[in-house]
Amino acid sequence: MHYNWDWGVFFHSTGIGSEIYLDWFVKGLGWTIALSLAGWVIALLLGTVLGVMRTLPGKVLPRIAAVYVEIFRNIPLLVQLFVWYFIVPDLLPEGLQTWFKQDLNPATSAFISVVLCLGLFTAARVCEQVRTGIQALPKGQTNAAYALGLRIPQIYKEVLLPQAFRIIIPPLTSEFLNIFKNSSVASLIGLMELLAQTKQTAEFTANLFEAFTLATIIYFVLNMGLMLFMRWVEKRVRVPGLIALGGK
């Protein structure tokens, strides 16, 4: 293959003000990070609540959480995004609908759709991990907490969740990385995150290879960084004298 690599292309002007192509990637990365972190906050909070619900005594709450998981886990992410972006707004009451479709900046309304989509999708997966983490704990821990007079919310907050989260840090790390990778679906509804900026740069400059190589490197470095960060977290919360919790 004869291809003249031109890495200087990123420093060429885009023709818009004093902007260079590299600026597009920086902006795109900004959107990617914002989308993923906002989605992760929803996923972690909602996923934890659902995971707890799945392990509660009784029938109704565990079942509601189970149904949630099946719905959000069994429909492709992209389909879910289209539902959130194209269908759900039409179902909103009139006032909200106009606000979402007309008053909001198009980038903002797309952002809201993607964050909801990523957050709710990932919550189903986080839920299952939180549930497994709780169920991996010996039943005696719950009994001991009950025997001391703690009430159910206290038992989860003080005894079960702190242990469960330490156990599930490794699979939770995968979900955390997945949400960054999954955020690229936003490019399909025109939100200018990293992948969309890459495609745009490729189209504008015809330097397809350079653009996608740079995007690949950015995604890789970003995810490696996140993984190392999570490893550091895992080490920090490790319990002295305990091998089973907090990883190797």
Partner: peptide, 18 residues
């Protein structure tokens, strides 16, 4: 409330490891 007034000790200790 009743449990808080009755102490219990288990076979496997069940201290909170964290």
């Amino acid at each position: 409330k009743l449990r808080s007034r009755v102490g219990m000790v288990f076979q496997h200790f069940e201290l909170f490891p964290h």
